[in-house]
């Protein structure tokens, strides 16, 4: 695995659809380390037929501690719409997809992404934004956890 500590986050908003979508891509080993203190644990079995009943709750307890999105100064209520795995072995990624109704046009967006900065001092969290055609990418980390955009 690339020793670069990395996660990806895609945030898209389309005014016409009144929809804000958030896609988090996290290395599964990091998720297991963060929640179960064991990178190779299979206890929660994310996206497997035997996924633990408390897997989503534990996942969101962790995510909500280190990640939020505020649209027009209101924190978006993150509810998992779907999850999936991609890749193999140490490169296995857990994708977590959120969909939120956003009726009011977005005037401001505040993002906190400090995911895994409790584990790794050099964690890099890349955030891709596409807000009604306005594209921007940024890197958040332990030092710079929050970024706000005003439209």
């Amino acid at each position: 695995m690339h020793p670069l500590r990395l996660s990806l986050c895609e945030i898209d908003y389309t005014e016409q659809k009144e929809l804000l979508t958030i896609n988090l891509k996290l290395f599964l080993t990091d998720v297991n380390e963060a929640i179960l203190f064991d990178p190779n644990s299979t206890e929660l079995a994310f996206c497997r037929p035997n996924e633990a009943a408390n897997a989503n709750r534990l996942l969101m307890e962790y995510v909500n501690r280190f990640f939020f999105v505020k649209a027009n100064n209101e924190r978006v209520n993150l509810k998992i719409k779907s999850k999936r795995l991609s890749g193999k072995g140490e490169n296995t990624a857990l994708w977590i997809y959120f969909e939120c109704k956003q009726s009011d046009p977005i005037r401001s967006l505040e993002i906190k992404n400090a995911i895994f900065t409790d584990l790794f001092f050099d964690q890099n969290n890349i955030v891709y934004l596409d807000i009604d055609g306005i594209n921007k990418s940024l890197m958040l980390n332990k030092r710079t956890q929050i970024y706000e955009l005003i439209f």
Binding site: F121, Q123, L138, M139, N141, R143
Partner: peptide, 21 residues
């Protein structure tokens, strides 16, 4: 360059690698 898209990161400043990575 990945660092350079961190808001506020300034290449002209000296950073502590143990603190900031």
């Amino acid at each position: 360059p990945l660092r350079m898209i961190e808001p506020g990161f300034d290449m002209a400043e000296r950073h502590d690698p143990k603190e900031t990575g």
